[in-house]
Design a protein around this nucleic acid. Structure first.
Lengths: 226, 226
DNA sequence: TAACTCAATCGGCAATCGTCGAAGTAAGGC
DNA sequence: GCCTTACTTCGACGATTGCCGATTGAGTTA
């Protein structure tokens, strides 16, 4: 959905030397009048104008968030035409889900959330997880170019990498071993088996290896809720 | 360089329900202590702590900007290790440059800035330009998949599309014609010729067709300065 | 255990935000 | 010329931010 767009707009406004001008740019891009926006946010139109004209030079993030959401909301109610224009393809179909958490979550907590069992207790659980990527292992192996592997890591490598369709429980860990970037945690989703070598490799790389019996859709839902 | 990352961090902080927690997440990710950050920003450490702990729940965009830049700055001074970790490949080599302007700039002004000559005065110059993309036409034609064309349009289609290596002056406009997304302006960079059909198509699509004698590096520099 | 680092907490104060509403300007209809 | 629509400008005022410095607490290290 439009999460990326939302972030893009917010980021641009926040970083702009003239946040007001940037707000205006986006409002115009969305073809929304000050009045419509003001109505949506239940504030007076002069407020919008004050921001855009620069009378308030450093609006709080809360204000920016409200404005961004207002723009997106109005467009949605109109059919989402502009949003669609900005939407980019999600990329490879081997990636089933991906997200970043707004704040670090403890590996232990994460484990509980996904009802996972840890298989190598020797590596510490005291690290933060900042995001997740769920991969269809088979598709990933057959369709990924080496550059695509970068996509597995969203914005932070301090993340959990979840593999579905695990058969012998060896290849995913081998792939991780071969790759220069290391996740904080690897999760096998409903694996048929967990390989011994995989376990050794995980400990070697200092990666927490976990398995869960939850199904992928359920997992995605839980992870999105963080 | 790290423009995308900068925007990503700012966007995430701004949109977070707990901006402080998100600030902390990134500071930790960058392995920077409150003290180091405070020193870089020439403020007291308690300020950072106050934000992270949530005493200030809606910091101004100026504050957020300073913090983000502080994080990136410190990392740069340390060798830029973390930034590099987040850097994603720039993508196709057919795209020579791309950027978004922090605010809308008038088509006329834009024209003057790049020392361009307009070839179809019939279409109005009264539209805003929000960004630009410079493409090597030859490489684009030979290497782009149809999905790649989406990349030409950064975040806004209300942008200028600049083609280099134009020979007959026809193909670029044909490509634009065939594509569902239309830029506000097409610029031929040091073209050998400008095709008549291209002109007609431009008018038909209501796209401003401009040519410039400036070289690509000079163009990029000027455009980045907006 | 004393010394030091990293971070959290808090009272306090000037500067700025967030918001309103009234009044004013500019561009079209008709 | 009169009525809308779409903004801009501005005085006012309570709520918050932005910042400081002092203090406390939890970990490290010598």
């Amino acid at each position: 959905m439009s999460k990326l767009l939302r972030e893009k707009i917010a980021g641009e406004i926040t970083l702009s030397e003239e946040p007001g001008a940037t707000i205006k740019k986006w409002r115009t891009l969305f073809n929304i009048s000050q009045k419509d926006l003001a109505e949506n946010l239940v504030i007076s139109t002069s407020v919008i104008s004050d921001y855009e004209s620069g009378r308030r030079q450093s609006p709080g993030v809360m204000t920016v968030r409200k404005i961004v959401d207002g723009l997106l909301d109005i467009d949605m109610n109109r059919g989402g035409d502009i949003i669609k224009k900005f939407e980019v393809e999600t990329g490879s179909e081997a990636i089933l889900g991906m997200g970043e958490f707004p704040k670090s979550i403890d590996a232990g907590e994460f484990c509980i959330l996904i009802e996972g069992h840890c298989h190598n207790a020797d590596v510490g659980m005291d690290r933060g997880i900042n995001g997740f990527t769920i991969v269809d292992s088979l598709k990933a192996i057959t369709t990924f170019s080496s550059a695509d592997y970068l996509k597995l890591y969203g914005w932070s490598t301090e993340r959990a990498l979840l593999f579905t369709g695990v058969r012998y429980g060896r290849s995913p860990m081998i792939a991780v071993r071969a790759h220069p970037m290391k996740p904080a945690m690897v999760v096998y989703v409903q694996p048929e088996n967990i390989d011994d070598l995989a376990l050794r490799l995980a400990s070697l790389e200092n990666i927490i290896l976990v398995s869960t019996d939850l199904a992928t859709p359920e997992l995605i839902e839980r992870l999105k809720s963080i």
